[in-house]
Amino acid sequence: MTINIENEKQQDTAAEVESSRRNFIFGSVAAAGLSVAPGVMLYQTANARSLSDFSLKDGASSKVRWGMLVDTSKQVDWNKCVEACNKEHGLGNETNSRDDQKTQYIRVVDVTNKGTGHSMSLPVMCQHCENAPCVDVCPTGASMKRADGIVLVDRHRCIGCRYCMMACPYKARSFVHEVLTDQTENTPRGKGCVESCNMCVNRIDNGQEPACVEASDGAIVFGDLNDPNSTISTLLKEHGGKQIRADLKLNPGVHYQGI
């Protein structure tokens, strides 16, 4: 599928983008249910700001490194991101699994400093590590990193050994504990395989932003870390950012401000 957004060079503000997106999402859900047809996606893309370099014409490119910047100081309800993710990927459809067996791609973590009593919340998903331990340990190569830095599981190759879950320092992965029905078209999931946040690769390849970013009221910025002029790089350059457990030297693609 080719996406004709090459000439889109609008410079919308983040807020405008967000509102146009949300409107679109609600509209499309009402009109077409969850399985949005490719054509409809296209319409959304064209309405958004310039996402030309998001499109996947010749496969993932190593020139790009997708990343996210989460501003934890923004007073947003992170649960909205969780809901958007669950909806996008059709999560939460387990019928037998216990709560500790259910899949979560993104979760809200509350952090309290025992010394000062200061607390805050932040969303944590797969951090899309550059030196991803989950990729290194996977015996079959099912756990892989695309050239553009997105880490995901090829669920047709995964044998369900769960070694990647043992290796991930961020508890980012879940194991599918039961037969799943009622799945979304874009995120095939299967009993006995491991899964995790794939940065909404289906959306990115369609020129859209990840679902959590869209639902974050601008508190999560998505973009190309390799492009010094991208919004994310500029923000990181101006205000800095931190990676969770940076001491592990995995160089995650997800950065945070205010932690």
């Binding site: 340990v137 015996p139 190569g141 995964c158």
Partner: peptide
Amino acid sequence: LGRPDRLIVAMTKFNFVSIFTWNI
């Protein structure tokens, strides 16, 4: 394994960075 039926995958597709592969 979650997918013991995919033994053939484990025996044919190797990631040599993985210590698991070496163990096989």
